[in-house]
Design a binder for these strands. Structure first.
Length: 474
DNA sequence: GCCGTAATAT
DNA sequence: CATATTACGG
């Protein structure tokens, strides 16, 4: 009782002993999937209940409300779509749900998460996915669910509940206070739950949707009202958007400024660099789109202030917008990326054959701002299947040695690509498929990173410190 | 009235 | 520290 208990999770590759028995309700219409997943779950020591239809799953969820810890459900069930399932389960219990599906597009993933899913896994699931699954059995209430609940919970005014320093909230995490406790806004004299205006927490999902909205609306049309309309999140107020937008713009400006000052710094030092820069870019031009080039050059030559205003979507000049579009590189603090772009042949006259680079290769190069406010170049590339990454950070910017240099001479030693295989290291720029799985989907990556901050699942042995409250969740 | 910005409060 | 609120000018 008193204090904390340490439970260690061995995951050295052998059978993993879960800290506590985790009971999973597995729902998949496909018998084969059901069998395989069930086996995988068993391997790690999960208790498994299975269902082939959503209705069955709901029954089980109802019957065994106390026993179950997590639902792992296929998105496409014969009798119910995933939204309906999420909604219904949400009504009858607080069971966290992980949705799995072969769909890996933004909409499907975002949609599921917004409807309250604890996580979204893209099939096929790896052993690692399964291994880490147990986390979601209780991560939901603290992160996704709280916001989801609050956002969908009150439409007009109901401002109840708890979402503060989630420390002192014990077991009264009522799952079923869903039903309209509108006017019962008791001023209860007890310590908690006074919080007139509960702060909105901008989760990754919310922020991603925010970015998505801006991406769609375009930089010119991205005003609070429109964004709010687009995001369409119940409970979200225009003021929330405004505030967030303000912060967002500030971050953009900060980055722009950093680029500018660094460039100016370097400008004195080396015109040569700029020459190199443009010529290199031409070379790259045969390979890459480099939308940020404009603003980079204009910042050196202030008179040509005729940039942007182009609403040609998909290729906007603000980094985070780009990220918003291909949610790919949005991480927990998605403003680390100044500029990144995917490759594809650009219709420039090819001045030089770009090395040995095969045309089907893609990747991106760019500059990012380190914590110390300096610029650093990086590049990252995918192989032909888009599966394997090589990421390399260039020298960080100094007074003399501009990080730009690194960024610009892009294909540094492509021929030696094989040399630096694997997951080298995760630098500050993490949002990429990091673990041994295939690297595909965005949100997963972002979420994984976020989660890993709390549960260091990549370590061989993890220690969880939990106290009595923990057990209330089970 | 809406928006953007800055200052200020929580 | 992140978010909310307020005030003011466009």
């Amino acid at each position: 009782m008193s204090g904390k208990k340490a439970i260690s999770v061995e995951s050295g590759g052998n059978a993993l002993l879960l800290p506590i028995s985790v009971s999973v309700l597995l729902v998949d219409g496909d018998s084969t999937c059901l069998a395989i997943l069930s086996k995988m779950l068993h391997w790690f020591g999960y208790k498994v209940n299975t269902a082939k239809r959503a209705t069955d799953a709901l029954c089980i969820a109802r019957e065994r409300e106390g026993e179950l810890n997590l639902m792992l459900a296929e998105a496409h069930l014969p009798d119910m779509d995933k939204y309906e399932l999420l909604e219904t389960v949400g009504e009858i219990s607080k069971l966290p749900i992980v949705i799995m599906s072969a769909d890996d597009n933004e909409n499907d993933m975002l949609g599921g998460l917004f409807k309250g899913a604890a996580f979204y896994l893209v099939k096929p699931l790896s052993m690692n996915d399964i291994k880490n699954l147990w986390q979601f059995a209780f991560i939901k209430k603290t992160d996704t669910m709280v916001t989801a609940e609050r956002l969908s919970g009150f439409s007009s005014e109901g401002t109840d509940d708890q979402m503060l320093p989630n420390k002192g909230k014990r077991s009264d995490q009522d799952a079923k206070r869903k039903e309209e406790m509108d006017k019962n806004e008791q001023e209860d004299n007890d310590d908690y739950s006074v919080q007139k205006k509960p702060k909105l927490i901008w989760t990754h999902e919310l922020h991603n949707r925010f970015l998505q909205a801006i991406g769609v609306l375009g930089i010119d049309g991205a005003h609070p009202k429109k964004i709010l309309q687009y995001m369409n999140v119940p409970g979200l107020k225009k003021e929330n958007i405004s505030s967030h937008l303000q912060k967002y713009r500030l971050s953009l400006k900060r980055e722009r400024d950093t680029v500018e000052t660094t460039l100016n710094q370097d400008y004195n030092e080396s015109h040569v660099l700029l020459c190199n820069l443009s010529s290199t870019v031409n070379v790259l031009g045969s390979l890459f789109q480099f939308p940020e080039m404009q603003s980079m050059t204009t910042s050196c030559q202030p008179e040509s202030r005729s940039q942007e205003q182009k609403n040609e979507n998909s290729c906007m000049s603000m980094h985070s917008l780009g990220s918003a579009h291909a949610l790919n590189h949005v991480g927990p603090s998605c403003n680390d990326i100044l500029d990144c772009r995917h490759g594809q042949l650009a219709p420039t006259r090819n001045q030089e054959p770009a090395r040995q680079l095969a045309p089907t290769c893609s990747g991106y190069a760019g500059i990012r701002i380190n914590n110390n406010g300096k610029l650093a170049g990086f590049h990252q590339m995918l192989d032909f299947n888009g599966e394997e990454f090589v990421e390399e950070n260039m020298a960080s910017s100094n007074n003399v040695d501009s990080g730009l240099e690194g960024a610009v001479q892009w294909p540094p030693s492509l021929t030696r690509q094989e040399e630096e295989k694997g997951q080298q290291q995760q630098h500050l720029f993490v949002p990429k498929p990091s673990t041994e799985d295939h690297g595909e989907h965005d949100i997963n990556c972002a979420e994984r990173v976020g989660i890993d901050e709390f549960f260091d699942t990549t370590k061989v042995s993890t220690q969880l410190f939990i106290d009595e409250n923990f057990h209330d969740l089970w």
